[in-house]
């Protein structure tokens, strides 16, 4: 019998960003997520894979869907979950992230899912603790599980079962400057071979992004007819400090995806949004609820992707310990 090649093995103890992953890593986690999709369709929506493990949700910034998605993902793997949020806890009493992390870890936690308003927080935390850290969004840096679930959705929608996105053009539209979703999408999509066009007003689209290997456009209308995917970002009013655009209405006029604009795009263009939607600004209601929209698939895929991530990082930990 010929010697089989060494099987691929997930090497990462933490998931901090898609910038750190190889194309092979990304395909592997997405392939793993395919196996988890079915769990949510059963009568018993649970598998015993992480039985006896504990996952801590450490959320220092508001979140509904990401936190509940991670909670549900951990429960479906039979892990126990503790929830810690910034408000109403010692974190708001001035404890450092490092101390918080080490204290949580001392309770016997296997993985911390961390969201933080500062870029780089997850990396800092991963250096302070011995357990796995999964970045659930750090400032303007990365939101890797959102990037993964967006890519998963694109690939499934366009029938790319091998997660090779060659010849697919994805437009990411909106406030690129402040968007960790845009960064994670960009890193992941480029690694899988997609063409990425970042679209937004010049005030929210730094030219330096072109160095990462994507195209930039200041006009949504210019790119509409040649893209396969429109990922519409949320205008993050909480992060916009200066006057990035004259008015919300002007932004919506130039960059909002209206039914009229959608009619000029490819007929089967995939419309995405990471949520929560500002209806009437980034997306018209008819578009958000229309046949091109895969927004709710993104949410259900997010669950499978997060299950895959928690499953894989908890295995890599053992491997790191053995080495």
């Amino acid at each position: 019998m010929s010697k089989t090649p060494e099987p691929y093995c997930w090497p990462h103890k933490h998931l901090l960003g898609l910038q750190d992953l190889s194309a092979e890593d990304i395909r592997f986690v997405l392939q793993t997520a395919v196996g988890f999709l079915e769990v949510s369709t059963r009568s018993v929506k649970k598998v015993p894979a992480l039985r006896g493990k504990v996952v801590a949700n450490l959320f220092m910034e508001d979140s509904t869907r990401t936190r509940s998605s991670f909670t549900l993902a951990a429960s479906r793997l039979s892990a126990d979950v503790i929830d810690l949020s910034g408000k109403g806890s010692s974190i708001s009493k001035g404890e450092t992230l490092r101390d918080t992390g080490r204290n949580i870890e001392a309770m016997g936690i296997d993985a911390i899912v961390c969201r933080h308003p500062l870029s780089g927080a997850a990396v800092q935390l991963s250096r302070a603790v011995n357990c796995s850290v999964v970045n659930a969004g750090d400032g303007q840096h990365e939101h890797p599980t959102q990037g993964l679930l967006d890519i998963f959705t694109i690939a499934r929608q366009l029938g790319r079962t091998d997660f090779d996105l060659t010849d697919i053009t994805v437009a990411i539209v909106g406030d690129i400057t402040h968007s960790r979703v845009a960064r994670s999408n960009l890193y992941g999509l480029l690694k899988l071979g997609a063409t990425v066009v970042l679209v937004g007003p010049p005030t929210l689209l730094p030219r330096a992004f072109a160095d990462l290997g994507c195209e930039l456009s200041y006009s949504l209308d210019d790119v509409l007819d040649r893209v396969d995917v429109l990922n519409m970002l949320r205008i993050q009013f909480e992060r916009l400090t200066s006057q990035a655009f004259p008015s919300v209405r002007e932004y919506a006029t130039s960059f909002g995806l209206t039914t009229k604009r959608l009619a000029r795009a490819k007929p089967d263009v995939v419309v995405m949004h990471p949520g929560p939607i500002n209806r009437g600004i980034e997306l018209d209601s008819q578009v958000a609820d229309g046949p091109n929209s895969v927004i709710l698939s993104q949410v259900s895929h997010g669950l499978a992707v997060r299950m895959a991530v928690l499953y894989l990082v908890s295995g890599a930990k053992h491997q790191a310990d053995l080495l």
Binding site: Y8, E38, H318, Q319
Partner: peptide, 11 residues
Amino acid sequence: IGMQPTVRTTE
């Protein structure tokens, strides 16, 4: 076991 074995689909 050291690593997580590959998950495939149940159909």
